[in-house]
Design a binder for these strands. Structure first.
Length: 484
RNA sequence: CGGGGUGUGGCGCAGUUGGUAGCGCGCGGCGUUUGGGACGCUGAGGUCGGAGGUUCGAGUCCUCUCACCCCGACCA
C-alpha cells in the first residue's frame, strides 16, 4: 500500500532496528530533542506535558500516603557525600563536581546531587530529637546528575527528572513497611496509569542500591529486544544512614536510638518505557490516562461553505468534550487531513475524531482509535462525550492487556543453563529460574550471558528446585534478563 | 577506555582525474487542493566541523585536531 511505503520513509520499522526506531520516534513525535551537551536532552512541550500528567497523578498518590513535598539543594559538600562508604563507592564514578564559584576556587568541592540521601539525612538529624518527631515523610521533585558513559534518551541521560522520597522512622519494621508501601504505590501507578505490567520483587545483594539494607524494584519488559527496564526502586536503608549522619532520638523508654530510613524514586525513564512497550511502526501509542492530548479533532472540507459548517461543528464538539477530556482541534489549513492523521498517529493520540461534510449531514462524528487503526466508527454528536469516555477507558485497558501478553509470551521457565544462554542471545525475553543465592553463580551468568537477576519476585513457588547454574538447592526463583 | 563510523543549507544526502557547490524534503509568497502524508509557479537559505600544509586553484590530496553516532566494558 502506498501509505505504508510512506511510513517507511518517515520512521524506520521496529523489526529493522528497534534501537534506532526508539531514537527516531522520540525525535519525530517531538517528545525530546538533542542538546549541545552530550548525553543531555531537551524535553519538548509535548514530552513535558506527558511528564506533567504523570507527575500530577504520582504526586497525588504519594501524598495520599501522608508524604509532604519539600526541596533540598542541588549541591552536596564532598565530605557529606563521602560519609556513607558504600554509598560514595557506588556513585563516585558518575558524580559531577563543581570546584569553582565565579573565579574563585572552592575550599571544598561540591557534588551535583546524583541522589539526595547525603544532604537530606543531615537535615533529618537536626529535625529529629524525640520519637514524637517521627516519622518524617518527605518527597522532592527535581533533577539529578549522573555522568553516565552511554546515554540513551529518557532511559539514561546525564541529567534526569525524577521524584525521590526520603523518610525516617523509629523502627526497622516501620521503615520496611514504608519501603514496601511505596513500591506498591509505584506498581499500581505504572500498571494503571502507564499501562505497563511489572514484576515486583527484591534486588539481590550485588544489584541493590549503594548503602541500602534492601532494595525493592518493579521490572518491566520492553518491546523489541524484550530487555528489562527497572522502572522504579524503593530502598530500606536500615540504620546505615542514621548511624553515619547521627540521626538519633530519645525513645519512649528514655533510651537514645538511631533512626531508620527509606528512599524511593521513579524517574522520567518511565517515559521511555511507555514508548518502547506500546509503540508500533506508526509511532507512539500513549495510554489515555497520561496522554497530553486524549482526543484530536480533524476537520475535513473542500469548499469554503463546507469549511464554515465543519469548523462550527468542530467547535461544538470540542466544547462538549473539553470539560472531561484533553481535546485538541487541529485547525491547521496548510496540512491535508491525511497528513494530520499520520502526524497524530505518530504522536500517539488515543482517539481521533474526523468531522467532514458527510458527518455533518448525519449529525455525527467519525471516531478512530489509535490502538486498532483501520476500524472506523460513527458516533452521533449527542453521544460523543459518553462514547469518548468509554473508548478511552477501553484503550487504556487494551494497552495494558497487550503489554501483559507480550510479557507472558516472552517469559519462560528455564531449567537448563544452556537454554538460558540461547534465550538471552536470541533476545527471547525473561527467564524464570531457580537460584541458590550465591553471588558466584550470579556473577558467572552475568559474565557468560550478560543477563542479570532483575529481581527475586515476591511471588515465589511453594516447591523450590535446584539452582540453574550449580545445581545446589535453590533458595529463590528469580528473573534473569538483559537490562537497559 | 577499547572497536567501528560520520561531519557539505533546518533535516536526509550527492559531489567524477583537484577547476569556484547541487538534489530531495522542509521553509516564505501566490494560486489550485483537502475522508490516510496533494500539486503548480516562485523565492530565501551553505566561507563544505576546525587549524595548518601542498597547489595557479582544495568539499576533493596530506598532517594535526574537535565533535557526534553506533557496538562493547559500566549504569535509574
Amino acid at each position: 500500500m502506498t501509505t505504508e511505503r510512506k511510513y517507511v520513509e518517515e520512521l524506520i520499522e521496529q523489526e529493522d532496528d528497534f534501537d534506532r526506531w526508539y531514537v527516531e520516534v522520540i525525535q519525530k513525535a517531538e517528545l525530546a530533542d538533542e542538546s549541545p551537551v552530550r548525553g543531555t536532552r531537551v524535553i519538548r512541550p509535548y514530552g513535558f506535558a506527558l511528564w506533567e500528567n504523570m507527575q500530577a497523578e504520582l504526586d497525588r498518590r504519594i501524598k495520599a500516603t501522608g508524604v509532604q513535598n519539600a526541596y533540598f539543594p542541588l549541591f552536596i559538600p564532598k565530605s557529606y557525600l563521602e560519609r556513607e562508604a558504600q554509598h560514595i563507592q557506588g556513585f563516585a564514578p558518575e558524580v559531577a563536581w563543581v570546584t569553582r564559584g565565579g573565579d574563585k576556587e572552592l575550599e571544598e568541592p561540591l557534588a551535583v546531587r546524583p541522589t539526595s540521601e547525603s544532604i537530606i539525612c543531615p537535615m533529618f538529624a537536626r529535625w529529629v530529637q524525640s520519637y514524637r518527631d517521627l516519622p518524617i515523610l518527605i518527597n522532592q521533585w527535581c533533577s539529578v546528575v549522573r555522568w553516565e558513559e552511554r546515554p540513551r534518551a529518557f532511559l539514561r541521560t546525564l541529567e534526569f527528572l525524577w521524584q525521590e522520597g526520603h523518610t525516617v522512622h523509629a523502627t526497622l519494621e516501620e521503615a520496611e513497611e514504608r519501603a514496601r508501601l511505596m513500591l506498591e504505590v509505584y506498581r499500581d501507578f505504572v500498571e494503571s496509569e502507564l499501562a505497563i505490567p511489572v514484576i515486583p520483587g527484591q534486588k539481590t545483594e550485588s544489584e541493590k542500591f549503594a548503602g541500602a539494607l534492601r532494595t525493592y524494584t518493579i521490572e518491566a519488559m520492553m518491546g523489541g529486544k524484550h530487555w528489562a527496564l527497572q522502572s522504579a526502586t524503593s530502598h530500606n536503608l536500615g540504620d546505615h544512614f542514621g548511624k553515619v549522619f547521627e540521626i538519633t532520638f530519645l525513645d519512649r523508654d528514655g533510651k537514645r536510638r538511631f533512626a531508620f530510613n527509606t528512599s524511593w524514586g521513579l524517574s522520567h525513564r518511565t517515559i521511555g518505557a511507555m514508548v518502547m512497550v506500546h509503540g508500533d511502526d506508526r509511532g507512539l501509542k500513549l495510554p489515555p490516562r497520561v496522554a497530553p492530548i486524549q482526543v484530536v479533532i480533524v476537520p475535513i472540507w473542500r469548499k469554503d461553505e463546507e469549511r464554515r459548517q465543519v469548523e462550527e461543528a468542530v467547535e461544538r464538539v470540542r466544547t462538549m468534550l473539553r470539560r472531561t477530556v484533553r481535546v485538541h482541534a487541529d485547525l491547521r489549513d496548510d496540512k491535508t487531513p491525511g497528513w494530520k492523521f499520520n502526524d497524530w498517529d505518530l504522536k500517539g493520540v488515543p482517539i481521533r475524531l474526523e468531522i467532514g461534510p458527510r458527518d455533518i449531514a448525519n449529525d455525527q462524528v467519525t471516531l478512530v482509535r489509535r490502538d486498532v487503526l483501520g476500524q472506523r466508527q460513527t458516533v452521533p454528536i449527542v453521544n460523543v462525550v459518553d462514547a469518548v469516555q468509554q473508548e478511552l477507558a477501553s484503550i487504556q485497558e487494551r494497552l495494558f492487556r497487550a503489554a501483559r501478553e507480550m510479557l507472558d509470551r516472552h517469559t519462560e521457565d528455564v531449567t537448563d543453563y544452556e537454554r538460558l544462554k540461547e534465550r538471552v542471545a536470541a533476545h527471547a525475553g525473561f527467564n524464570r529460574a531457580f537460584w541458590c543465592g550465591s553471588a558466584d553463580c550470579e556473577a558467572r551468568v552475568k559474565a557468560e550471558t550478560k543477563a542479570t537477576i532483575r529481581c527475586i519476585p515476591f511471588e515465589q513457588p511453594v516447591e523450590l528446585e535446584p539452582c540453574l547454574v550449580c545445581g545446589a538447592p535453590g533458595r529463590y526463583r528469580v528473573i534473569w534478563a538483559r537490562a537497559y
